[in-house]
Design a protein around this nucleic acid. Structure first.
Lengths: 343, 343
DNA sequence: CGATATCATGACAGCGTTGTCAACGCGCAC
DNA sequence: GTGCGCGTTGACAACGCTGTCATGATATCG
């Protein structure tokens, strides 16, 4: 494998000049630069990333930090982040903080597990995905160690003066718009299938339901709300509970697609026709939503774009060319086969 | 941040001895080892991974190399690989080779893209997932650069003398068993929804169908086979094509769950009742298969275990404690609601 | 009891880059 | 002609570890 020294010899310059060319630093005359580039190409030289990291105090490595999340969501996050990494010549590593991936550390908190993982490879920055964006210990650790990081969702209970960095979408507005449309189509008995209350996602989406109902002069009685943990299985009993009420809801909004699928399952089991007798809405626009029968009405979250945007923001933050912003990306309601006028 | 020198001073030993303790090398007396460990704990010392990589010529980094694959499958692969990495103190990076993640390199072949990616971070070993396991250029590149790697599926067209390393399952036997059971339940008109012919997965699964039919004295006429690319969308026209034949098939086996979902969609559109009028089977046991209505009969692939096993094998290969084996893990047929006796 | 083998430990030279700072060459002003 | 400043380049010391090999201490053996 060629080293920088070989390139320098071939180009007839010092290794420092080669280093300058590699790092696109100023102060190298164009002809010299060209000679060096030619030498690099001829030798097929690739700078050793470890030597670079050691000497330069930066690794060109970003880590994706995540807990338990739906496969399709996480996959989109990875794609977006990888796209940004490819654009800026960064590499990307995975840093799962859920207990299952690291059985031996089940007793540690998320912050401790993160610290442990960061010892093994030292990324220049981190991208946090929900629900970890609501983990106060994690924020505290990252801020105290002066780690650069971006988030894919604002910190729900962030202290005063904290500025989120990354990208988000307006969950509340999206759900508001969705529920408003349901109301316009005649629905008055609308059920809501919520996620864990400590998750920002649950909070913002629930707020959207409440706002839309309140605006129409409607209330959300306790028996029209059920709670689960965003998983299909956990949502089955919750969906049954909602459908057991009388009068039954004519529409159910779930905080994500997996839970909406559970509503569809229960309706199928009971012979309740969707959308004729029951409208169902999800959130995420996962592949699942298109594969269900009938296809699910849901809110498209621009997950890939958000991840890419947040990652670029993170890279700029690391490079010092930005102080860090939180970008808000547009959602889109996907009207599909699970919604009809209230009968 | 503490360095090895600080630990050495505190423990009253040389840095080399600390290095020995960190790397669990032999030749350090137990009391000394304890003093060093205590010093490490007291300082909260974490060896710098880049210095380690530079000096030691190894990175404790593994890369997952993949092309286009279903989200849930890839997620399981990641989980299994991450579990193995955590056990052995390796870090893991992602190396997607599909064109979308690296738009600017759309014109490069997979081998060239891999080479490009390997320049950015130099993993000690790679894990290849299908369908890249069938990419001859990739194998050639890896073997010529003497890279260690393992695969999650054998190389379909491997040259003589090539020994696959990693983990697999017996696709052919699984599908054989599944189709045999369909035949026993009275099905005689069985359709098969195939994947791309150049994929090993397509080949082995199709072979399973053929074997089972042949064993029962049945043939697989051309009009009972349709082809798609493993995606839901691509399988919709293929499913229609199968159901347009007369007599229509009483059962359709798809080469994966997404394509089986497409069969369910078309049946739903046409009012064909599943399983009463049509039995449907998938392959993968993805979350989707459980969320469809009715839930899909499918073959459980122990993806996570396979990935973990293959990764451990890879690590042993890197460490020289194994010459590399291909492990075969057991499958399991998940009988669910989409199969009934032929009417 | 001395010679030799074995074990535990340390000194020191890399590993392949980047950062710092000095040196050099050249043009321009006085 | 001399001096100054700027743009360009290079020498060399880090960066924080591991590998090699020498050294001293201890155990083994005849």
């Amino acid at each position: 494998m060629a080293r920088i020294e070989d390139v320098a010899r071939l180009a007839g310059v010092s290794i420092k000049t080669v280093s300058r060319v590699i790092n696109a630093e100023a102060g190298v005359r164009e002809p010299t630069r060209d000679r060096v580039r030619a030498a690099i190409a001829e030798l097929g030289y690739r700078p050793d990333p470890y030597a670079r990291s050691l000497a330069g105090q930066r690794s060109f490595l970003l880590a994706l930090v995540y807990g338990d999340a739906a496969a399709s969501y996480l996959m989109d996050v990875q794609k977006g982040m990888l796209a940004a990494c490819a654009e800026r010549h960064y590499a990307m590593m995975l840093c799962p903080l859920d207990a299952r991936s690291r059985p031996q550390s089940a007793s540690m908190g998320t912050a401790a597990r993160l610290q442990d993982a960061l010892g093994r490879a030292r990324p220049d920055g981190l991208l946090l995905t929900p629900p970890l964006t609501d983990d106060a210990d994690l924020h505290a650790l990252l801020m105290s160690t002066n780690q650069r990081y971006a988030s894919l969702s604002p910190w729900l209970a962030s202290p005063d003066g904290h500025e989120d960095i990354g990208a988000r979408m307006d969950d509340t507005a999206a759900v508001h718009e969705l529920v408003q449309a349901l109301i316009e189509r005649g629905h008055r008995h609308i059920g809501y299938l919520d996620g864990p209350p400590e998750h920002g996602a649950s909070h913002w989406r629930r707020t959207g339901v409440l706002n839309a109902l309140a605006q129409a002069g409607l209330a959300l009685p306790a028996q029209r709300v059920a709670q689960a943990d965003f998983s299909f299985e956990s949502a089955l009993p919750a969906a049954r509970q909602l459908l057991d009420q009388s009068p039954p809801p004519t529409a159910i909004v779930a905080a994500n697609d997996d839970m909406a699928a559970a509503v569809l399952r229960v309706a199928w089991e009971r012979g309740i026709r969707v959308p004729e007798a029951l409208s169902v809405c999800g959130f995420d626009d996962s592949p699942l939503s298109r594969q269900l029968n009938p296809p699910l009405t849901t809110i498209r979250q621009p997950t890939q774009d958000m991840a890419r945007t947040a990652t670029l923001e993170l890279i700029d933050l690391i490079g010092g060319s930005s102080e860090g912003h939180m970008h808000t990306l547009p959602y889109q309601i996907q009207w599909r086969g699970t919604v009809a006028d209230a009968s």
